[in-house]
Amino acid sequence: MGIVELVVSIIIVLVAVALVIWLYFIRQGDAEFEFLVDQRTGLKLDSINSNVAVFSCKVPFVNKGMQDGTIMDCYTRHLLPREQYDGVELASWLAVETRPRNDGYFEALIVPKTTGETLDITLKFTAKDNDIKVALADMVDFSLDIVYQVVARREWYIAKQRMIVVADELIQALNAETTRA
C-alpha cells in the first residue's frame, strides 16, 4: 500500500468514526422542556384584604426529551408597565408544587426524561390607592413570562414561555371568592 492509499484509508476511517459518533449523539438526543401554559389552571384568589389580593394558578411542565435535564433556575417575569396600567403594584413568583417554598428561590431540579412537575405561580396585587377591588375592576390583560435556565448534555441556555393573565379571569376569581365569603 502506497503512502497515498494509507492516508486516504486513515481519513476514511476517521470520517466513519466521526459519523458513527454523530449518529449516536442524534439518537441519544437531549432534554427538552415545555411549559404547558395552555393547560394551566384558572386563577384562584388565595387571600385578600383592603389593599392586597393574592392569586395563584398551576402550570405543568414536562421534559419531553430523551435525556434527563436540570432546571437550574426558574422565575416569573411579569410585564405590566405603568403605561399599561398604573393602579396596582404587582409582585410575582413561583415554586415547584412538590417543593413548596416562600423565599422566591428556585432550587435546581433534575427532571427525568418523559416526566414533569407543576409550578405554583403566585401573583400579588397591591392597590396604589388602597382599595384593591376598585383597582382590579379596571385591570388589563398582561403577559407573564416563565423564564428558565436549563443544563443537560449540551451547554446551558435560558428560555422563556409566555402566558397571558386575563383581567376578566382575575375579576371572576375575585367575585367568586367574595361571593362565597
Binding site: 436540570t70 443544563v151 451547554e155 446551558w156
Partner: peptide, 22 residues
Amino acid sequence: PCFLAKVMCRFVPQKGSLSSVY
C-alpha cells in the same frame, strides 16, 4: 466546555456527575 468535554459527557450514564458537559 471544550470539544472533548462535549463529546465525552455523552458516553457517561445519565445519573453520573460527569454526564453533564459542565
